[in-house]
């Protein structure tokens, strides 16, 4: 699971570089994000703009990441592609997360 991190203001941005979060990689994904999230920053913004496929196992892994961050650090989502947004919508998990259309830095980087 290929993951990159960066900072935007106070936020830690965790960008998934792979195109799929499915049953085959759900555990690996969770562990990779857990490791990357040891870096400081709040909220943690999970950038899913490269992810074009997420199944219910992948969704469960995203929820697991939210839980392991604990109550002090928020997990927010960014850049959901249409197939990924559909899974959040069908399961009503879109009500649980703050979802950004794109990374805040995409707008603020120059200003």
């Amino acid at each position: 699971m290929d993951i990159a991190t960066s900072r935007i203001g106070q936020a830690l941005v965790v960008t998934v570089m792979d195109s799929r979060i499915d049953a085959a990689v759900a555990i690996e994904f969770k562990e990779a994000v857990r490791t990357e999230a040891e870096a400081p920053g709040n909220p943690v913004i999970l950038d899913l703009s490269n992810v074009t496929f997420l199944d219910s196992s992948g969704l469960g892994a995203v929820v697991a990441v939210m839980k392991l961050l604990g109550s002090e650090r928020r997990l927010e989502l960014s850049g959901l592609t249409p197939p990924v947004a559909k899974v959040f919508r069908l399961t009503r998990m879109d009500s649980v997360f703050t979802i950004h259309p794109e990374l805040p830095g995409a707008l603020r980087a120059t200003g």
Binding site: S56, G60, A64, V96
Partner: peptide, 15 residues
């Protein structure tokens, strides 16, 4: 689904 106490990680597939 009732955060923060009830955040399911599974049970979505058949739905």
């Amino acid at each position: 689904i009732a955060p923060p106490d009830h955040l399911p990680e599974g049970g979505f597939g058949w739905h």
